[in-house]
Design a protein around this nucleic acid. Structure first.
Length: 254
DNA sequence: ATGGCTACGATCCGTAGA
């Protein structure tokens, strides 16, 4: 079973790239973030024609998440229960016995801002909810744009980024609290190339300079971590014309 | 030099991303 996550930064703009990528990436499950479209505008027919069922939770302009799957999606939940929130950032579904949680964590904008406060509050609520999901599902995977670079090796220039949003200690603490539920960062279960990133700024030729961050993650419960045989970042879509600023991360389960 | 792109929805600039 292959699980993938990709922040597409507008599904309308990236639909062709997604449809091209599905046959090459061969994922069984794909979590998408930043759809940036209303539910009525979700390209259900194109996705179905590509061989995928889908669940989605979108809104105009901002946010929006979807889970694509080759097989049935069951027990779909959108949003964090008991966390009233207009922002469409969370979607969960059970697929082939695996509980899949698709997350688009808040960016946080700037340390100390209202959005930063919201990000930390969101992490607390998400972590509390995922704890309950883990108690109910041994086979659980959290995939998404978590908007935290967990360690300095996940940052192209740790000195320049020190204390900044996406890297600050309170954000890293929030990320570690999520992992402390018993989740494993699938990417770090394996030897990886140095300077592996999943996002590069559009400006300053960020991708060409490999000036990136690793902020898109696949987190696995112990049961799934034991089944995981590989986790890779697929940089190919980032090389296309008019790319998303993020690129897919894929985990392979036996 | 603190900018530099991109997407969106409003217009011909502001908001947001990360």
């Amino acid at each position: 079973m292959r699980l993938a996550t990709w922040n597409v930064n507008s599904l309308r703009v990236r639909l062709t790239q997604l449809l091209d990528w599905l046959p090459s990436g061969q994922p069984d499950v794909v979590c998408l973030q930043e759809l940036k479209l209303e539910d009525a505008k979700f390209p259900r027919e194109e996705i179905a024609a590509a061989g995928y069922r889908a669940a989605w939770s979108g809104q105009k302009t901002y946010n929006g998440v979807a889970i694509l799957a080759r097989t049935d999606t069951q027990d779909v939940i959108s949003g964090i229960p008991d966390f009233p929130d207009d922002q469409k950032r969370v979607l969960a579904a059970t697929i082939g016995g695996v509980r899949v949680i698709c997350l688009y964590a808040p960016n946080g904008q700037a340390v100390g801002s209202d959005k930063y406060r919201y990000k930390l509050d969101w992490y607390v609520a998400a972590t509390r909810w995922i704890a309950a999901e883990l108690a109910a599902h041994h086979s659980l995977a959290v995939l998404g744009d978590l908007n935290v670079a967990p360690e300095d090796r996940d940052v192209h220039d740790p000195k320049a980024w020190e204390g900044q949003v996406l890297v600050s200690e309170p954000e890293r603490d929030a990320y570690r609290a999520l992992l402390a539920l018993g989740l494993k960062d699938a990417f770090r279960l394996f030897d990886q190339p140095e300077k592996s990133f999943s996002w590069w700024d559009y400006r300053m030729m960020g991708f060409r300079r490999n000036a990136g961050l690793r902020i898109d993650h696949v987190l696995l419960s112990p049961t799934l971590a034991a089944r995981c045989t590989a986790c890779t970042i697929d940089k190919a879509p980032r090389k296309l014309e008019r790319p998303s600023d993020h690129t897919p991360v894929i985990a392979e389960l036996r």
